[in-house]
Design a protein around this nucleic acid. Structure first.
Length: 292
DNA sequence: AAATCACTCAACCGCTATAAG
DNA sequence: ACTTATAGCGGTTGAGTGATT
């Protein structure tokens, strides 16, 4: 029944990788490419399980990995993405070229958490520390309560979050439409899985603009769970995506009364493109992962 | 110089969703 | 339809290292 085992786990090495093992893995992947981790250890002559090989390659050996300290821009981007996505390290890593989910996770736990606490911000909720307890209570009691954190599988959340609505908070007079017009020419969206380096200039420009012209409020609002069965993480994730897409058309600028066209999440994150509409990448895929 | 503490991060563990048989 | 392995993810651990006493 079922598949045959992937490897002889009884005869696999554990612990730190040696230089020789690294080299074997690098050489093999250079010749055959990534993937098929199941058969890789045998083929490459490694006494490791495929899982371990995959991890070693992704987190340490990949040639496109960026080494060195995180920049201030990266710090702020991580904080912003975490406020939206929660502990979804792989999603966050997809927005930071050359950084791995493991690296970002470690960096978050060792640096950014402390940094936020120093700023008086709760690292989990992204709210002011002295307001966190009240806000949490309110968020669970009031429909359409505004929150900043979407931690889909937080260990502290015993009830999966339902996200029936995601709204952009009312905007000031300097509207999204104006902002996106200014940035329309910059739109150059790419897949989140490749060519990530294209985004870096975007980030920098976004933050420069944001600091001088803060027109996007990244706060999200969610409602109480609907009367539906509990959902798995992937369901919730899908619902988040659908809700984002479906509800963005209802976004309007409070002052002007103009209803904006559809807006993709990537644009909301500051990777603006094509006047705030779905970028071509988002159009071409239904996967939340592929927002860009 | 030795002991202790604090910190970092690579690697492992356990889980879920999905694919394969 | 069912079972089992795989891929991938987030959480946790512990060895290594530098700072402090």
């Amino acid at each position: 029944m079922g598949r045959s085992p992937c490897c002889e786990k009884a005869h696999t090495n554990k612990g730190a990788w040696t230089k020789e093992e690294d080299q074997r893995l690098i050489n093999y992947i250079r010749r055959h490419g990534e993937g098929c981790w199941r058969s890789l250890p045998t083929s490459a002559g490694l006494l490791r399980c495929g899982k371990s090989c995959r991890l070693r390659w992704i987190n340490y050996l990949r040639p496109d990995l960026k080494r060195g300290n995180f920049t201030e821009d990266e710090d702020e981007l991580i904080i912003k993405l975490h406020s939206l996505l929660g502990n979804k390290w792989s999603l966050i890593a997809a927005r930071l070229p050359g950084r791995t989910d493991n690296e970002i996770k470690n960096y978050w736990n060792t640096h950014i958490k402390r940094k936020l606490v120093t700023r008086g911000v709760d690292p989990q909720t992204h709210r002011p520390l002295n307001a966190t307890s009240n806000a949490t209570a309110t968020a669970t009691a009031t429909p359409s309560t505004t929150i900043k954190s979407l931690d889909f599988r937080s260990s502290t959340n015993t009830v999966p979050l339902e996200i029936p609505s995601i709204n952009i908070m009312p905007l000031p007079n300097n509207t999204i439409l104006k902002f996106k017009t200014e940035s329309a020419e910059e739109g150059n969206c790419s897949s989140s899985t490749t060519e990530e380096t294209q985004h870096q200039p975007h980030h920098r420009e976004y933050y420069q603009k944001e600091h001088t012209q803060p027109v996007i409020d990244l706060e999200l609002s969610i409602g109480l769970p609907l009367t539906r069965p509990q959902k798995t993480e992937s369901h919730v994730r899908h619902e988040f995506m659908v809700s984002t897409n479906q509800l963005m058309p209802h976004v309007n600028t409070a002052a002007s009364g103009i209803t904006s066209p559809r807006i993709c999440l990537c644009w909301q994150l500051g990777f603006e493109n094509k006047g705030g509409e779905y970028c071509s990448n988002c159009k071409s895929t239904s996967a939340f992962y592929r927002y860009c």
